[in-house]
Design a binder for these strands. Sequence first.
DNA 1: CTGTTAGCGCCTTCAG
DNA 2: CTGAAGGCGCTAACAG
Lengths: 291, 291
Amino acid sequence: VARSLRSGSTGNLGVVLGEHLTYAFDDPGAVSFLAGVAEVCAAAGYGMTILPISGAPEDAARVADAAVDGFIVWTTSDDDPVLTSVLATRRPAVVHGGPALDGAALVSIDNRSAARAVGAVVFAGARRPAVVSQPLTRDRVTSTSRGVPIEAASYPVTRHRLAGLREAAEAAGTDWSDVLVAVCSRNDADEAERVATALLASDDPPDAIAAMSDEQAVGVLRAARAAGLRIPQQLAVSGWDDLPAAAEFGLTTVAQSLREQGASCARVALGEAPVSMAEEWSLVVRGSTRG
Amino acid sequence: VARSLRSGSTGNLGVVLGEHLTYAFDDPGAVSFLAGVAEVCAAAGYGMTILPISGAPEDAARVADAAVDGFIVWTTSDDDPVLTSVLATRRPAVVHGGPALDGAALVSIDNRSAARAVGAVVFAGARRPAVVSQPLTRDRVTSTSRGVPIEAASYPVTRHRLAGLREAAEAAGTDWSDVLVAVCSRNDADEAERVATALLASDDPPDAIAAMSDEQAVGVLRAARAAGLRIPQQLAVSGWDDLPAAAEFGLTTVAQSLREQGASCARVALGEAPVSMAEEWSLVVRGSTRG
DNA sequence: CTGTTAGCGCCTTCAG
DNA sequence: CTGAAGGCGCTAACAG
């Protein structure tokens, strides 16, 4: 401890996992990201401090006081007060996913382009495209509505994906104001199953659903099975991330390596990588979509 | 940082994840344990420092120097040098699973009794019981042999489970020297599938396999399906942990809450819980076993 | 009630 | 080449 004071460095990277620390470990994407961070930290002889975010106002102060040499912030919202704290420390900060900030590096794929690409496949030939979305804002309000105001989404990753999906829907001939968007409060198969069940039970059920994670897509598939729908003829479904579950269920999805992105974040935060650059993604087309 | 020096406390708990940090995040059990630790840390306003273990000799020194107020050690072996370092710091230490050490609290279920209970079910009516085991020693040597010398296993959790399974096998009428034990190097469905495939292809294939995790059990089930075996008539299988996969595949398993155990560890390390006490477990019998 | 100071433990620098 | 000291930033205790 005294060594840290004297040397001015702590040998620790701080990882801020967004609003609810507890959820983070339940999200396989976040875990895979952490594995990437851990890998680089271990190799560099650095420790990795998970900064506890309970959602209370004192979180910001705690983060500011954390004994770490740099910060990695897991995907969060534009208005997350913790981001302000992190920047105020003037220590190296790397944001995963977004938001993009002056004074912080950004490690992310091009979510908008990826969403446009997966949307083109899942919405192909669909007359009633729909979206099962991750939260739009930090209050994690759930809703199901048409023509969601995209700019109101304060999670930039969600916002960019919606923007890409909008372009894809319009390219497929459906106006955004006709696209149903079901917003979930968590990234979780169970909740996605519930909202998808409701969507599919409506008078005018969707014939294509783009989900924002493989987890959610699995929930949608379960709802579709319960409703007796044939995939992809009656309902096309896409996921995101290409986790093992996507291969298992034959999901069309956007493949990205969150683990590699975690490693990139750590390298940038440690000054081992010069700048942040756009991360790679690719489209994986499987049997859950037409075409 | 200076505050820590002055006050003598860092507001951080250290979590040592055993030999290979990288594997830890791939193991759903470890992740669930971390979620429990994180929960308590967040509530107490503590940070949680993952101490990087690469397997190199300098790990011990790094752990000893870590800026943390207490340690939680995830299940490891009797001879792990990191344990010596942790004890030498004279800071509060809590070991999960084992080994039991003077000067450290232990949070664990009674693995031997639980193994005896699950063994009684999976080995019931079996004439050729077998075990798919987690590593016995830190070198993670793989082997398949009969009458494994249980006392040679330096991971106490593995040792206690083998001891319980031995009692169950003998109660079911098979001498331990006739019980095939396949030792894997990792806790992983793929490797378990490979070793189980080999077991099932032998001249005298087992008709009951107790695995040490649900992950491994899923691998065994895959091998059994590939071999065209009916479960449980031709092959009974049991897992351990009762993860979601166990319910999905109808696995008989030992249910324990690693998350709750992680929370217990954190509470004990923070001095919120008085002593360590035995954690709860229960037997969940599903269709993968006879009876 | 406000302002000053000593010292937490280590490392680096400088003196002997 | 070995030994003493100052100071990292903060806070608790004490003096004014």
